[in-house]
Amino acid sequence: MSMIKKSLAMIVLSATTMSAYANQCSTVRFADVGWTDITATTAVASELLKGMGYKTRTDLLSVPVTYSSLANGDIDVFLGNWMPTMEADIAKYREAGTVETVRANLEGAKYTLAVPKYVYDSGIKRFSDLVKNADKFKNRIYGIEPGNDGNRLIQSMIDQDAFGLKDFNLVESSEAGMVSQVARAVRRNQWIVYLGWAPHPMNQAVEMEYLAEGDEFFGPNYGGANIYTNVRSNYLNECKNVGQLLKNLEFSLEMESALMEDILNKKIKPSKAAQQWLKNNPQLLNKWLNGVQTLSGDDAIKAVSDYVNANA
């Protein structure tokens, strides 16, 4: 009789554990660090999950808080691990096993200092050319939000007097603030140097060029980068269905640029831009939803298709 009770207790405990995991997995918690490319990809992932019957939550956090939140279990997924420039941000968490990397979700990105083309054509082609024209740049390099990895790299150059930049100042604001400052400078034909990256509509909004010589700080090939998906420890095992989706998710430069154009310049809400993009590009659902089911175990491709067609 005691063995029967023990077996029943184990069954109840197993069912309770499975139920706890199901409840834990039914809401997927994302971090967004305020960059439009990550806002766009997070919106796409969120809309896929909503179509599959999941709930999603996105918190706007700085890069350092994103990683501490992944480590302590407050966040499940981060789609914006730019590498190699974010190595210092993720290293200690990766080594501790509190943050895991799923895969590269975008390849062929870039991330380094840039100038308008008319400044480049005037002879500013390398990092070392900046100090020779410090007065024209007003000794300023424009970055984005405080705590950002790119800002940190710029400040490191200044602190180390790399390229003779010790008298330059980092101007921190936000992605939108920096882009507005660049647009204003271009309208006035003023000189400006700033943190540039692709994918981003800034590459189409103004004629711009990336500067050489930044390999030591931003990496080779003009800050050539891949962007990775991170999750909290053991998330892929606990939430296998969402984990399979994350293993499948891969974006393109063209896709992200198009979505960012909709969000930044056409002022379309990220969720609506993602819905419209998914409706117009249904062929990707077969790849992204391969081996994936809805929360209730049904056909994910049909469910997501029905969802975006009804909402886009």
Rank of each mutant, 00 (worst) to 15 (best):
E213C: 08
N265C: 01
Y21S: 05
K132I: 03
I263D: 02
I268L: 07
L285S: 00
A176K: 15
M18W: 01
D159Q: 03
Q181C: 09
G219F: 03
W35D: 09
K125H: 12
K50N: 14
M52K: 06
S68P: 04
I124Y: 12
W197I: 06
I268R: 06
G150I: 07
A300R: 12
M260I: 03
L70T: 05
N280P: 00
N139T: 05
R29W: 08
M3N: 11
A185R: 06
L61E: 04
D167P: 02
I192F: 03
S68K: 10
L289A: 01
G147L: 08
P116I: 04
M202L: 09
I124F: 09
T85D: 11
T229K: 08
I75Q: 15
S128P: 02
N237I: 09
T66M: 06
F137G: 02
N169A: 15
D89Y: 06
S156E: 13
K269Y: 05
L48A: 00
R152F: 08
N169D: 14
S233T: 03
D129P: 06
W277N: 00
D299N: 14
N241L: 07
Y222Q: 07
M260F: 00
I263S: 00
M52G: 05
G196I: 13
P201F: 10
L61K: 07
T58A: 13
A198E: 12
A176W: 03
A104K: 09
N23T: 11
G219V: 05
R94C: 02
Y93Q: 05
A71W: 01
I154Y: 15
I154G: 06
Y93P: 00
K110I: 07
A274P: 00
V231C: 06
T16R: 13
E216H: 07
D32F: 06
E47K: 00
R126E: 15
L236N: 01
K302R: 09
S26H: 07
W277G: 00
S46H: 09
L249G: 04
G150N: 01
Q155D: 13
V193A: 15
L170R: 04
S2A: 12
V12A: 09
T98C: 10
V308M: 04
D262S: 07
N230E: 14
S156W: 05
Y120N: 03
Q24N: 10
F251E: 08
M3T: 15
K125M: 15
V28G: 10
I141G: 05
I90V: 13
Q293N: 15
A31C: 01
F127R: 06
T36K: 05
Y210H: 13
